[in-house]
């Protein structure tokens, strides 16, 4: 029993060590050699454009549902006019970035993990390495950069669509014009709401890309490993999103709200 526990902890520690080495290799490769622009653009398209529909629909429903859920409580308190503000603040500060990141973790981290895992199994990564090319630069740096840029963009687009969803729900019960609704939403937001939200999505994107790449790059040989890499990428990336969010909230709170 104790031996099993020790083995488990040792494997965990080895995993942490491997991640640190991978992290340092990743950073070294950013600054050495040329940047793979064409692969980076392709990844931005794959990661950003192809996830837009999913993020859009989810955010729209989220905005709509939030208004439907919030309305009875706020009406009871006599604060129905606060609905656009409440939605805007909650969506922009927290729900939008986190929901977008979780969706991206499910879609992108798993896809990167499976793709790189499959490349590992079919010796494509080894082939790149032994040819003298740099697989880390081509496969990892481009994907991590693409997720770090596209996840914030997706979160911003998701926020706007979510606000539209909220407007639709509100317009069914209350007669409010689009311009008044958006004026109320925007006037309730300030710099301290927007900047931290965007900055933390950059870190969410980095975590999604990095974890996906790490899990795929280090998968074992065998078809089962591809599934394990994809699954593990989603779970680990999702966990990191919540950890980063908790840290970001603390820092934001210290910097802006105290």
């Amino acid at each position: 029993m104790a031996e099993q526990a020790i083995t488990g902890w040792r494997k965990w520690a080895e995993g942490i060590g491997e991640q640190c080495i991978f992290f340092s290799r990743f950073f070294r490769n950013i600054f050495t050699g040329g940047f793979e622009w064409s692969e980076f653009v392709r990844q931005c398209y794959e990661i950003g454009y192809r996830s837009m529909m999913l993020v859009g629909i989810t955010s729209f429903i989220m905005g709509l549902v939030l208004i439907v859920q919030l309305r009875p409580s706020l009406v009871e308190l006599g604060a129905a006019s606060m609905l656009p503000k409440t939605l805007a603040v909650s969506l922009i500060r927290e729900i939008g970035p986190v929901i977008t990141a979780i969706i991206c973790a499910g879609k992108i981290a798993s896809s990167i993990g499976a793709e790189l895992g499959s490349m590992k199994v079919t010796e494509q990564i080894d082939a790149m390495e032994v040819s003298g090319a740099n697989p880390l630069q081509y496969l990892v740096v481009t994907r991590v950069f693409a997720t770090s840029i596209m996840v914030p963009l997706l979160a911003i687009i998701g926020d706007v669509i979510g606000l539209f969803g909220g407007f639709l729900a509100l317009n069914i019960t209350d007669n409010i014009s689009l311009s008044l609704y958006f004026t109320k939403c925007i006037s309730s937001l300030d710099f301290s709401d927007l900047l931290p939200a965007v900055v933390k999505t950059v870190f969410f994107g980095f975590a999604i890309g990095f974890v996906g790449c790490y899990k795929g790059y280090h998968s074992n040989k065998g078809t089962e490993s591809v599934g394990i890499a994809a699954n593990s990428a989603v779970v680990t990336a999702s966990l990191w999103i919540f950890v980063i969010d908790a840290i970001a909230v603390q820092i934001t709170s210290l910097l802006f709200y105290h």
């Binding site: 079919t122 494509q124 032994v130």
Partner: peptide, 30 residues
Amino acid sequence: RIKIGFLFQSGALYDSMTVRENLEFPLTRV
């Protein structure tokens, strides 16, 4: 490694690239 060629058992072709892109890869990257 540039002086050593390695042919893998499976061929290890990059499956997201066409044959042309597979062959261009070592020329442009290596």
